[in-house]
Amino acid sequence: MLLAYRCALASPQITATAVETSEFPTWADRHGVMAVPAIVVDERPRWTGSVPEDVFVDRLLAAVRETGTAVSD
């Protein structure tokens, strides 16, 4: 959750929301959350588990590229 927040602080394009799964089970079910932390980027489930900063950024950028072309090289 903190890495997602750090990303949100680092880029004005990014917003981060943490959802307490046991209080909002329907929200979590919608994304098929089976384990936490589960990371959903632009409404699509991406990965589960804590990862180091560089891996988090890798996966985030891969997810953004896959759902659009709005990443400059």
Partner: peptide, 22 residues
Amino acid sequence: LSEPSLERLGAIERPVSIDVFV
């Protein structure tokens, strides 16, 4: 974040939402 991460995230040109289920 670290300098390399900041640089890479700076390339994002559209709004992106990250939801973390905890």
